[in-house]
């Protein structure tokens, strides 16, 4: 139980670090770390397939995509970097504080929740799930990818034009 809690705490810290650090690359690193830890959590709860997907797609593929997109961006100048560092605490201190406070408050709320873990019906075969049950969602995700690609096309062409 203790390892589990420790795992969750480190996961949250990694996520916090990812959102508060000032460099894009460090942020990506933090995300990859958090995803990896999440896949460990999933594995330890018995969802092997989900853990594998999480590790390969999120920690792996997404980080690669993020890093390659980040390479298209202009690195920050020293002044921007310093200014960002100075102001970041001021900008975002309420958010994590509030979240933690809310979490603590909610934990005192005695919501008598009966959690019954329903095991997924049918065979847990990934192929069946993806191709026959959730085709629509797959289609949706293809669309998001398409939109994302269009976005990259647009925004970076625009950046390039603006820089000229």
């Amino acid at each position: 139980m203790i390892w589990f809690t420790l795992l969750l705490v480190v996961l949250v810290l990694a996520a916090l670090w990812a959102s508060m650090t000032t460099t894009l690359l460090r942020s990506t690193l933090g995300l990859a770390l958090a995803s990896a830890l999440l896949s460990v959590v999933m594995f330890s709860m018995g969802a092997t397939l989900a853990a594998v997907m999480e590790l390969s797609v999120c920690a792996g593929l997404i980080s690669v995509v993020l890093v390659s997109v980040a390479s298209l961006t202009r690195p920050r100048s020293i002044q921007e970097e310093l200014a960002s560092r100075r102001s970041r605490l001021r900008r975002i201190w309420p958010l994590p504080l509030v979240l933690i406070a809310a979490g603590v408050a909610l934990s005192f709320v005695h919501a008598p929740v009966d959690i019954v873990l329903h095991l997924p019906k049918g065979d847990g075969d990934v192929r069946t799930v993806l191709w026959s049950l959730r085709q629509l969602d797959l289609f949706g995700q293809i669309l998001i990818l398409l939109a994302g690609a269009l976005g990259v096309l647009v925004l970076f062409r625009k950046e390039a034009k603006d820089d000229d």
Binding site: I92, L95, V98, L99, A102, V109, A111
Partner: peptide, 20 residues
């Protein structure tokens, strides 16, 4: 934007508490 997010989250908490 942080303020707006705060409002949203505070609203969500309020709604959940109300439902409970």
């Amino acid at each position: 934007v942080n303020r707006y997010v705060l409002w949203a989250l505070a609203g969500a908490v309020a709604v959940v508490l109300a439902v409970l």
